[in-house]
């Protein structure tokens, strides 16, 4: 079975490549259509028209767009994503410096969202056919209507200002430092055995994780609830009841495994959305990740950085879609046998 899953995964990953290439062409083309001149951006504001023209020539911007794309693509394959006009540094270095923070945030938010989503879905389902189920579904709908950035502002107001339980910006207590090993603060703190720093990092990441995760969890609750309702109409559940299994045994031993399948696919397909949600949440919490960098890059028309981050978002979405497929394959025997 493992070989079959690996084969599925490999097939999916291979299928990603042409999609990814098409996306790079689209993003590159879109950024070149914008009325922004990367040459002008990379020079001092007082640069003369001649200086800008010389820079444009040096950057290859006067060549046909397909030629520019080829130059960029060759560089990208070799790990050279160009130079950031804002930082006047290698774009790869600027982006890779922020990437671990965002991955850490998104994974924590995903764990939080799945925990709250599955827990909430089970809770609402266990109250089925009662008034509590209706109340639960209304609450889920209400939370679904709140976008992540609004939740972020609400959390800052309630848990940061009115009841200052959590810090509202940054990743770590001032004065506290963790030697960088992986770039993932929580992991680095554990690797160095600095538990004070670990808990400080958890404390600081709590509000962004809650804002990002809570915006995603109602969808998981609804899907799980609907899936469980559907599963309970299957004949094998009736048979399990007739065999005298308890409600808990039926739920956790029989129904949940099958009902989780749509949730797994949902999480996989929506992961890209969660990644995209970091854009505003990171800015609001001054979290030094890709989202924050992307907002700044857009404000300053730092095209090479916008391009690099767009591709990371794209690659992440495609990758997690493939992983969701593989997981669905693992969980669903009908897919395996078919």
């Amino acid at each position: 079975m493992i070989i079959a899953i690996l084969r599925i995964l490999a097939r999916r990953l291979l299928a990603i490549i042409p999609v990814f290439v098409v996306v790079t062409i689209l993003v590159f083309g879109a950024l070149r259509i914008l009325p922004v001149d990367p040459a002008q951006m990379s020079l001092p504001p007082s640069a003369t028209i001649e200086q800008v023209e010389a820079k444009r020539e040096a950057m290859g911007l006067n060549r046909p767009i397909w030629e520019q794309y080829t130059i960029w693509a060759k560089g990208a394959v070799a790990g050279d994503l160009g130079e950031s006009s804002q930082y006047r540094m290698s774009t790869a270095a600027v982006v890779l410096d922020r990437l671990p923070a965002t991955i850490e945030l998104v994974i924590c938010a995903l764990v939080f969202a799945v925990g709250v989503g599955v827990g909430g879905g089970l809770l609402v389902f266990s109250a089925r056919d009662t008034v509590l189920e209706t109340v639960g579904l209304v609450v889920i709908s209400a939370v679904m209507a709140l976008p992540d950035f609004l939740l972020a502002l609400l959390f800052i107001l309630v848990l940061g200002v009115l009841m200052p339980i959590f810090p509202v910006n940054g990743r770590l207590e001032p004065g506290m430092q963790v030697p960088t090993q992986t770039g993932f603060l929580l992991i680095d703190a554990l690797l160095t055995g600095d538990f004070r720093a670990f808990f400080s990092a958890l404390h600081y990441i709590a509000l962004p994780v809650m804002a990002l995760g809570l915006a995603f969890s109602p969808t998981i609750m609804r899907v799980l609830h609907a899936s469980l309702v559907n599963t309970y109409q299957q004949s094998y559940i009736l048979q399990a009841r007739l065999r005298g299994l308890s409600g808990r045994e039926i739920l956790f031993g029989q129904a949940l495994k099958n009902a989780m399948l749509p949730v797994v696919i949902l999480v996989g397909t929506q992961f890209g959305g969660l990644f995209g949600g970091t854009l505003l949440v990171e800015m609001i919490f001054s979290f030094p990740g890709l989202g924050n960098l992307m907002v700044k890059a857009m404000q300053t028309s730092d095209l090479s950085v916008i391009m690099a981050i767009s591709l990371i978002y794209c690659a992440t979405t495609l990758l997690f879609n493939s992983l969701a497929d593989a997981l669905a394959y693992l969980l669903n025997p009908r897919l395996r046998n078919g």
Binding site: L157, G160, V168, M283, I284, S286, P288, K296
Partner: peptide, 16 residues
């Protein structure tokens, strides 16, 4: 470094 003005105010009011 707090780019958002609402978050800057929150940081001030929370004593951060």
């Amino acid at each position: 470094i707090i780019p958002d003005p609402t978050a800057r105010l929150a940081a001030l009011e929370s004593g951060t």
